[in-house]
């Protein structure tokens, strides 16, 4: 049975998925896909400290604490890479496990009696989002729709304004610096977007969607296009498709096996994975199925240096 509840769940899912997929494209291109994963775990101490300092679970201090912890993750990762002489993946691993552990300890020690449930943080409760509404004029809008919609709008504005700069600094950060566009500034601007998006999204829908949407739709788009702007658009499309198909799947698929409906968050993430699989199989020029059917080989081997184009 499709209700207005389901409509809102899909809308929240779509807003959140696109909000994540857009900055996610640049994360994937910068080979730091797991930054979203790292940030979404590392915000836990931020939540705990914000609670300890303010004594409430009010949204604003929680949000600020989490966003700050997210930015610190990016900062610490950069430091450990530079001074610890390790690669980015290892640096992220060190930072987010440590911060996550601190967060767990803080919650256990100081806030055990409060409902700050790490499990809830991971899996989220997208099904409950339509219950928490805000009156906007004559309409009751779910708070999660407003939050994720706001974040999506902010991401759209920043990525539109700095499109050229993000493209340049993601492709060639040294050139960006020599041309006077600080690659460091742009890096932390992107990290701010990711931190804010991650925190806003997982507060309402859980981090599994966030982690999936930051990486999977952009990776899917990369299989389907060789240009940046189409990549952003296709990633958004794949994210929307995953949200719709995921929620439908959560309602319908378990029924085939005689179960009640399952969690939409997990199903949306799973749907994005299936969409990636389809793109991997059937992408017109990179898909493994299509490649088998194609007669002519790829015209130029990029590794070959025997270049005859001297015209």
């Amino acid at each position: 049975m499709w209700t207005s509840f389901d409509t809102w769940i899909v809308i929240v899912g779509m807003l959140c998925a696109v909000a994540c997929a857009l900055p996610g494209c640049f994360l994937v291109l910068r080979k730091m896909s797991m930054m979203g994963d790292a940030i979404s775990h590392a915000v836990l101490p931020g939540l705990a400290i914000a609670f300890l300092v303010t004594g409430t679970r009010a949204s604003v201090p929680m949000f600020l604490g989490a966003a700050l912890a997210g930015l610190l993750t990016a900062l610490f990762t950069q430091w450990i890479m530079r001074f610890g002489n390790v690669d980015r993946g290892a640096a992220m691993g060190i930072v987010f496990t440590t911060l996550f552990a601190i967060g767990l300890l803080l919650i256990r020690r100081a806030a055990d009696h409060v409902d700050l449930d790490p499990g809830c943080v991971l899996y989220g409760a997208i099904e409950l989002t339509p219950l928490d509404t805000v009156a906007l004029g004559r309409f009751d809008i779910p708070r999660a729709a407003l939050v994720n919609g706001g974040v999506l709008l902010a991401n759209l504005i920043v990525l539109t304004l700095f499109y050229k700069e993000f493209k340049l600094s993601s492709f060639d950060p040294d050139l960006a610096d020599t041309l006077g566009y600080s690659s460091q500034f742009l890096h932390y601007l992107l990290m701010t977007l990711v931190a804010v998006t991650t925190v806003a999204a997982f507060e309402s829908v859980g981090s599994i969607i966030v982690i999936a949407m930051l990486v999977v739709p952009p990776a899917t788009a990369l299989l389907l296009t060789h240009r940046l702007l189409p990549m952003l658009l296709i990633a958004s499309g794949a994210a929307i498709l995953a949200a719709v198909a995921g929620h439908l799947g959560a309602l319908v698929v378990p029924g085939w096996f005689g179960f009640e409906s399952t969690t939409s968050s997990g199903m949306i993430a799973l749907a994005s994975g299936l969409i990636f699989l389809l793109a991997w199989l059937f992408s017109p020029d990179q898909g493994i199925v299509m490649r088998r059917f194609r007669a002519a080989p790829v015209p130029i081997d990029p590794l070959s240096n025997t270049n005859t184009d001297t015209a």
Binding site: K31, K164, K167, D172, G180, Y181, H226, R227
Partner: peptide, 28 residues
């Protein structure tokens, strides 16, 4: 020094040489 799998074409990369002239926010 760069990732040649980056989703841009040759013209996009060459146009990056104009970015300093263009300045912040302005498009090619």
């Amino acid at each position: 020094s760069v990732d040649w799998d980056f989703p841009v074409n040759a013209l996009d990369v060459v146009a990056m040489g104009s970015y300093r002239r263009l300045g912040w926010f302005r498009r090619v």
